[in-house]
């Protein structure tokens, strides 16, 4: 009886995590905030569901397998989120007026400045006006194709 109550609470909690992710995906304005919502069922929701399975099963034999499953998700989900966020930043799938802090912008501008300086290595000195506009600098040094069109 107590076991059933615990399992029910854990299951409903995990399902509410999924529902929060669904609502967040539908209502949030841009890619980065949607990524914030999408991580809930991947980590915490899965943890609650696996705990429900462990409590319902009631044996310690199962626990290492469940821990392995959760650790695997815990290792892969930040990597894929990093890749998606990086691609979204480079292809400008974000609304800059929603950001409170963009630390990467200075670094990208500085790196683009260095690339510019190296390209204009001969005495054709470039005027310093190019470094001012952050949205115009999209040739970051390590990026693949520079994408100029707005989505």
């Amino acid at each position: 009886m107590v076991q059933d109550v615990i399992v029910s609470v854990l299951l409903i909690g995990g399902a509410l995590m999924s529902l929060a992710a669904g609502i967040g995906l539908t209502r949030f304005p841009d890619l980065l905030s949607r990524m914030h919502a999408a991580t809930k069922p991947q980590v915490l929701g899965l943890l609650l569901f696996l705990l429900a399975l462990a409590v319902e099963n009631g044996s310690w034999v199962l626990v290492p397998i469940l821990v392995l499953c959760w650790i695997f998700q815990l290792l892969t989900s930040p990597v894929s989120a990093h890749m998606v966020g990086r691609a979204g930043y480079r292809t400008r799938h974000l609304q800059r007026e929603l950001l409170t802090l963009d630390e990467l912008d200075d670094i990208v501008a500085k790196a683009a400045d260095e690339v510019d300086g190296r390209a204009a290595g001969d005495d054709r000195a470039r005027t310093a006006g190019t470094a001012g506009s952050p949205a115009g600098q999209d040739d970051s040094p390590t990026a693949g194709p520079p994408d100029r069109s707005e989505a």
């Binding site: 995990g14 399902a15 999924s18 992710a21 669904g22 995906l25 890619l31 949607r34 990524m35 999408a38 069922p41 991947q42 929701g45 899965l46 569901f49 894929s80 998606v84 691609a87 979204g88 292809t91 799938h93 989505a151």
Partner: peptide, 19 residues
């Protein structure tokens, strides 16, 4: 609007399938 949003949403769908 973009393919990254779609990938993100399908990731959530996969998490729900696991649940």
């Amino acid at each position: 609007p973009s393919i990254l949003d779609r990938v993100l949403a399908l990731d959530v769908v996969l998490a729900i399938i696991g649940a």
